[in-house]
Amino acid sequence: MQTKPHFAFFDEGSKKEIRRATLKAVAIPGYQVPFASREMPIARGWGTGGLQLTLSLIGKKDVLKVIDQGADESVNAVSIKKLVRHTTGVALTDQTAEANIIQSRHRIPEEPLRDDQILVLQVPNPEPLRKVDAREYMTKRMHAEDDYSGAWLILFEQIIKYQKMTTGAAHPVYVNGRYVMAPSPIPRFDNPKMHASDALILLGAGREKKIYAVPPYTKVESLAFEDFPFTKESFQGKQCNLCGAEDVFLDEIINQATGDRIYQCNDTSYCVDRLNHSEEKEVENSYA
């Protein structure tokens, strides 16, 4: 006999604990609030933080979207969706506009988020100062003392070595002018989307047992120097080979046989949406 799981997997005590930490996180933007981080049926470091946030938020009427590296159909996204569906029975969607809770790994959707949506980001390494000091005791102290010289120094060293800032993902940001925060491993391209966002952004790190948040309309600045301003990844002159989108985050795909490079939208639901839309227009305009 299979027993029915409790609604949203957790017992109510666990939810309460996560909820209390989340409320505190929202009240102190960018500060990593420690929480208990329960054992989950997926491995730590694979989205347990995001999943715990989602489960603490979700109710019967919610519509959930989960993306992994911009895709709705990759393994991590599908497994998380299945677990939440199995334990709550909520509706799932691929459409960014239809969802009111969006759990994401590595991307913020291309479509601008609304104020009735909550973005939950999965974070593997929440501590922007971990490279500076391995001890939690010390990094907590640095945050307390507003001592971010280490974070600046990491960027400075990159500039000295490579003449540019080489952060591939998780370029650190200043939140509300006080805390330096790792914005989860999103590309630099997505950093500006966090600034004064309409949607509430919650970040959860399950393995590191931290919850933090960026409330809507909050100042989020990427760390940069006067003579080395912050730059997004540039896709100038390139476009998606499927839908022709420009000014979106593109994946580079190399043809192994010919060595040709093609580019494709990283946000799959955005790409499919555009394709469907252009097809509809084609049908409208044809007189066949």
Partner: peptide, 20 residues
């Protein structure tokens, strides 16, 4: 209802805390 009603209250609380 300790599960569903309190979830709704929490979402309202979170929304209010995020948007003073």
């Amino acid at each position: 209802d300790q599960v569903h009603d309190l979830q709704q209250v929490y979402r309202n609380l979170l929304d209010c805390m995020a948007r003073p």
